[in-house]
Amino acid sequence: MELVLLFISVAIINNLVLTKFLGICPFIGVSRKLDMAFGMGCAVTFVITISGALTWIINNMVLRPIGMDYLKYIAFIMVIASMVQLVEMYLRKFFPPLYESFGIFLALITTNCAILGTCLLIDMNNYSFIKALVASFGGGVGFTLVICMMGGIRENLEWADVPDALKGAGITLITAGIMTLAFMGFTGIGSH
């Protein structure tokens, strides 16, 4: 039960994008089409889950025992960068069209602050390994959920009569703001 609550908490109530404002860059950059947004969400979920687990292991098995907590930023970034490389190879091999459509944003998952943020949050809250897994996976699912919603809304916005001054990034940011307000309605449901 606790794990389910934790999952819902990180995925929806404390959503990375809308309440912590992490990972805004792909949220705006790759949400133009729904299928691309979903692909990005899946890639980030994969990287975030693996990185969450690996960084937990490195942090608790290696860095803490030898008292080198301060190395965690470098170590975490190394893990994330390696995992992004792995995803990139995998996508190029099996989903070339997706790989093409991501372009630079795939490599930029490395600098996606949602991932490093999740790893650091896990470290800050001293989660157990299972909880770390659930939290990182939940974070990824939350990211996917929100970026897909954004993708769907933006696809429909293509047909809307947007005022000239707000076309493009402007209406996207306004949409993001309204989505944030909606997600704020969940505040207080969970205790995590």
């Binding site: 490195i58 290696v62 860095l63 030898i66 170590a75 190394m78 190879m89």
Partner: peptide, 17 residues
């Protein structure tokens, strides 16, 4: 420590490559 963890990922990525 960093060298070893780095090496670990180098091995993983080389195999994956």
């Amino acid at each position: 420590t960093l060298l070893l963890t780095g090496l670990f990922f180098v091995i993983i990525l080389t195999i994956a490559n």
